[in-house]
Simulated scan of single mutants.
Amino acid sequence: MSIGNSPEDDRPSIGLALQQARVAAGLTVEEVSVSTRVRIPIVHAIETDDFSRCGGDVYARGHIRMLARAVGLDPDPLVDRYDAEHGGRPAPTPAAPLFEAERIRSDPRRPNWTAAMVAAIVAVIGFVGFTVFNGDDDGSGTAQVAEGSTPDRNTPTPEATKPADPKPVPSDSAIAAAPRDKVTVKLSATERKTWVSAKDHNGRLLFDGLLYKGESKTFQDKERVDLVLGDAGAVELFVNGKKVEDQFEPGQVERLSYTKGDPEAG
């Protein structure tokens, strides 16, 4: 009795599945490259199951997702198959110096300058009153001075010195307080979920996964943070406390790098 192959044995490879779907959709490699921003040589390589040109597993997964969406395939089974054939997906490494933007520090107590001012005025008035009272205490109506001179009653009374204005308390917003000796990047999914990959300057993976609508992630490194955004139009981006005003299109894939000096002034 012969044993037939399982249905999985007859499945086309990842590259062949993408190629067949592209042809069925009536798309050329050039059209897929334009819509996904994946370079033509990489599209050709992936369709022949050569993922060495992707630059690593993280980018390979991202390319597979983008190409699958462009040709009308569900990307999740293809990515799962890629993971199964390439040793599985590594567990995301938490960002070591994760900058918790959502944590708000309690306000320090400010000095009570009003009370200090009142106390100073009372002290000055008391001193002036004491001086005048002692000058009139001999009953002659003239205060005696050691040099025999009569004090000038028209001398203006010293005014209370107004305390210096308190120094402004620095903003307690975690984004506004981003340290200048590091680069801090905050992502918020404002429109819909999007795939995000983040690495530090050593290429260490900080995050690789989906950022759902309403969620935020903040990454920090002493030199550089590298990002890959699967749908840049769905993300609100803050770098070093400043909002990035670039207008990304919905579904647009962006590869971004930010340092301590970004975004540039102006």
Rank of each mutant, 00 (worst) to 15 (best):
R110T: 11
I125W: 08
G126P: 00
A123Y: 08
E147G: 15
G141Y: 09
P166F: 00
S106W: 06
V118L: 07
R103H: 07
V132M: 03
V124C: 04
A164H: 09
E102K: 04
P166C: 02
D136A: 12
E102I: 00
I125M: 13
K162R: 13
F133R: 15
V145Y: 05
F133A: 15
G135I: 04
R105S: 03
A101E: 03
A101M: 02
E102S: 02
A119F: 00
F133W: 15
I125L: 14
E159L: 05
K167D: 13
G126H: 06
A101I: 01
R110H: 07
I121D: 13
T114N: 13
T155Y: 06
T157L: 11
A146T: 02
T114P: 04
G148W: 05
K167F: 05
A143H: 01
R103Q: 08
A101H: 01
D152E: 12
T155D: 07
A115D: 12
P108Y: 02
G135V: 08
T131N: 14
K167P: 04
T155K: 07
P163L: 00
E159T: 08
F130R: 10
P151N: 10
P108K: 05
G126C: 07
N112T: 01
V118I: 14
N112E: 10
E147D: 15
A119S: 14
A119M: 13
S106D: 14
F133Y: 15
P156I: 01
E147V: 14
P158L: 11
N134K: 14
I125K: 06
A164D: 13
A115I: 10
V122F: 04
D136H: 12
F127K: 09
M117L: 14
N134F: 09
N154K: 07
G129E: 09
G129F: 06
